[in-house]
Design a protein around this nucleic acid. Structure first.
Lengths: 146, 146
DNA sequence: TTGAATTAGTTGCATAACTAACTAAATATG
DNA sequence: CATATTTAGTTAGTTATGCAACTAATTCAA
């Protein structure tokens, strides 16, 4: 039995995603301390736009594993803060293409640096092999359920 | 360097806690399909009360890694649904002790069973060793940040 | 080519998260 | 003993999530 060692008490912290919550909280705090006024969730959207600007909301849904309403509202808030702009696609007018503002482009390097530093803190004494294994296991878990 | 293999692109899904979100969503769906009308977060509070009834809100904060306002409102909602009751401590009137109702006690076995089954689904083809390693790594990550 | 089905995105409602500011009770200090 | 500090819990405001129901544009099919 693959799962016999996974007892109820341990199950809980796995489900709540303790480690990822702790990392997100710390990163949020680091953003704030550096006067960067965006949430982790907003940052995760920007992250994908930095890789490829002009994604559609639907593409952002897939990239961030969020549902459509979540992306609608994240883009709403990013637009309010003048970090992105919705541009209706000419080819298919149902589609909104999301473009970064100058301000958002300027946030890239600083926030990436903070993210990397936060992660280095979190992963002190964790080896590359361990990270690799965790990643593949968590990916398999995800795939099993989707 | 322990972290050299942990690239930016990978960082993201680690932070969002993909796997734990997927498990939580699936468990929520399973609850719903069995007519159990509680959220995962409420369940996580009940979980600790099933282990030890009559915890204070502060103890529930530590046990669930949530802050005080979160517990206040989770208990609010659990009370509305008549699943728990706040009882002021006689020894220290600042403290609310939280007690399970009969209804909540009755939910224990059924929801535990659903949780275990959900986890078995999620952990198909994941070995006990892999689970053990993930757990210790995630715990170390958490400890590094707290 | 017209009506049905699909796809992209929005809106409404309930729950939950974090921060900051607050009240009330208990403890410490002087 | 009186005041200051700490501790337990609540309230308010903003953001985010999930679900269901919705609109509008596009594509498919009879």
């Amino acid at each position: 039995m693959a799962n016999s060692q996974f007892k109820r008490g341990e199950l809980y912290s796995f489900i709540t995603g303790l480690a990822s919550t702790a990392i997100a909280r710390r990163l949020q705090k680091n953003f704030k301390q550096h006067g960067i006024d965006i949430t982790i969730e907003q940052w995760s959207v920007l992250y994908h736009l930095w890789k490829k600007d002009g994604l559609s909301q639907q593409e952002l849904c897939s990239a961030t594993f969020r549902d459509k309403p979540s992306i609608t509202r994240l883009v709403d808030n990013l637009e309010k803060q003048k970090l992105v702009k919705r541009v209706a696609s000419v080819k298919d007018r149902r589609i909104n293409l999301i473009y970064l503002s100058e301000i958002a482009m300027g946030l890239r390097d600083q926030t990436m640096d903070l993210a990397n530093r936060t992660l280095n803190e979190a992963l002190t004494d964790v080896t590359a092999d361990e990270i690799e294994l965790c990643k593949t296991v968590l990916q398999r878990v995800y795939d099993n359920l989707t």
